[in-house]
Design a protein around this nucleic acid. Structure first.
Lengths: 338, 338
DNA sequence: ATTGACATCCAAAACGTTTTGGATTATGGT
DNA sequence: ACCATAATCCAAAACGTTTTGGATGTCAAT
């Protein structure tokens, strides 16, 4: 019932070895018999058992990704990255193995399982932490991987976006429009990119001679609801900011909700800007000014790099740094009232 | 270097069999030795080789999904479904194997490969066609699967949304607002749900005594750009519609673009409505009236069903039909001008 | 007739696991 | 002392593939 090499071999009156080598295209089998074998395999609908093949050859043609369960659903970031990686993987004939896990210990052990159980040839990881145990583990295990993001230790292949420069331009844009009281909603500090984006904020303020106001720098959890909550607090300050920059679009959209809830108009009373340029950003009301990360393309390029690492080919660039693009829309529209 | 059952067995001075059975929790191994074995396995960092395990036991703890490459990126529908399936799979300790493929022959052969190469225990498929070769194949192969959507042959487990009723209510809502010239942008006819949604349209018009105008029924490809193009043609008619209903939100958003491009106001001059309630729908300008499909939850329930099928447990319901919810927003806001 | 070169094929081992069907020892009842 | 039972362990087979290291036959050149 199940058709294996053996079935084909018996049908052809040949050995398993010959069938295997014929199908693999080795040149030590007669061209005529090869064609005959291929025909029979086709007719019987033979499909190699990949478990057996992997067991023997230690190659799975599969790329692993672990998705944090918290952000799995609501996070367009991962979806887009996934799309890029998946798309490019298909290009190379690779499949994608996804494991959704709670961040933390479970997540790390998912990596451990994936790697040690030899189900995958390589890993793409994202949202790297400043001090990332997953990277430490993968490095120590000598398992091929590429990261989207830099961490403290940078002796591994990564692709990243220059968040510092991105936010620098974004805040510069707001300053140009006359804003002086500019708040920033940070992402959790342990995420590597938080520091970079905060740096850009500080640099832009510094060059414009604007002192950093401690109360204007708040932290949230990358979700829309979190952004709404902290923006609420910002607006309740005795001297509220006239512009709010968030570390990602989801939080920026949350901030827009908070502003509207106060009876203020986004873009007219308070400017808002985000980071990422998720698809929704172009459709918010008003459309969101943001910094565009080409996440989809990053996914594709990360996979390109990973394939090189897997095949032990030298990478032309082991560290890719992309300069993000400022997307000005109406949410940063008007100059501040006073 | 690589730690296998053998390594652990040697370290413990026991046989491979005993180690295997100890770790699997069989009761024919002494509790003390079991604990000792577990400790050693832990210490050495033993992880079972899944390829070997699958080869032997024919269970992969993996669910397969094939994503059409065309809609992979731009389609929030698949992303959300994927999220639900992935999330619930994690709940059961299953992983997800994704293969992105061009629709058509390649796609079918991806299913063939996945199934015949015994990499997966079951399949979730979506966007079923009226006459779906993938379903025919999976049925014939007796491979566990659950579909999101009904096709012509319905002797398989599926979960679906009652699109006819959904569109019926949606069109009813537009008629209530005074619209009589209501156009519909259909999805490709070969998709099973197209027929259902069209039925709802016809029924609503029929009950209101409105004759179906052939030119008001057009077909497009589920993309935003496609929706824009056909909406353009609708607006160029001598007697253009005052309301446009699209088979999905993406095309509805395209229609909104076309309306604006004509210098008309969406919701005031021409009403627009979609289907799906993708995340973006709440943020368009004006927000989009639509029919909500709980895609994420559908993904989760589909996986619940699939697990039952895989474990050969009886399904409480082999055919789940959800009634979608009408979401009224501003895009259907005003009554027509004349 | 022998040799070497070449083309074509194959038996057997190996990958790491699970499972089958005992083997061995200890225990308690007669 | 003997047997039945239970508790604990294990050798070997099996899963389906790839790879190694020949084996066999043919043919041309010596």
């Amino acid at each position: 019932m199940k058709v294996t090499l053996k079935t084909v071999a018996e049908e052809a009156g040949l050995s398993i070895t010959t069938v295997s080598r014929a199908l693999a295209g080795y040149d030590d089998v007669n061209e005529d018999t090869r064609r005959r074998i291929v025909a029979i395999a086709q007719r019987l609908g033979y499909q190699p058992n990949l478990a057996a093949r992997h067991l023997r050859s230690k190659q799975t043609h599969t790329i692993g990704m672990v998705i944090p369960l918290t952000s799995y659903f609501s996070d367009p970031f991962f979806m887009e990255l996934l799309s890029g990686v998946g798309r490019q993987a298909a290009e190379y004939g690779y499949d994608l193995l996804l494991s959704a896990q709670q961040p933390g210990e479970e997540e790390l052990s998912a990596y451990r399982r994936m790697v040690a159980s030899s189900r995958i040839d390589g890993v793409v990881l994202a949202r790297v932490l400043a001090d990332d145990p997953r990277i430490a583990f993968l490095k120590e295990a000598h398992h091929p991987f590429v990261a989207f993001g830099r961490s403290n230790a940078n002796d591994y292949p990564y692709i990243d976006v220059d968040g510092a420069t991105g936010v620098y331009h974004l805040v510069g844009h707001l300053i140009e429009r006359g804003h002086r009281r500019i708040a920033m909603i940070l992402s959790p500090r342990k995420l590597a990119f938080t520091t970079a984006r905060f740096e850009g904020y500080q640099r832009a303020l510094g060059e414009a001679g604007i002192a950093l106001v401690e109360q204007y720098v708040v932290e949230s959890d990358l979700t829309q609801e979190g952004g709404r909550a902290v923006a609420q607090r910002l607006l309740d300050l005795p001297s509220p900011p006239t512009a709010i920059v968030a570390c990602n679009d989801a939080m920026a959209i949350g901030a827009m909700q908070a502003i509207r809830a106060c009876g203020l108009a986004v873009g007219r009373d308070v400017a808002v800007a985000g980071f990422d340029d998720i698809p929704t950003a172009a459709f918010t009301d008003p459309p969101l000014t943001t910094v565009r990360q080409p996440i989809y393309d990053i996914g594709r390029r990360a996979l390109d790099m990973l394939i090189c690492v897997i095949r032990q080919k030298p990478l032309d660039e082991a560290h890719v740094l992309l300069v993000p693009e400022l997307i000005v829309r109406q949410s940063s529209g008007a100059p501040p009232i006073r």
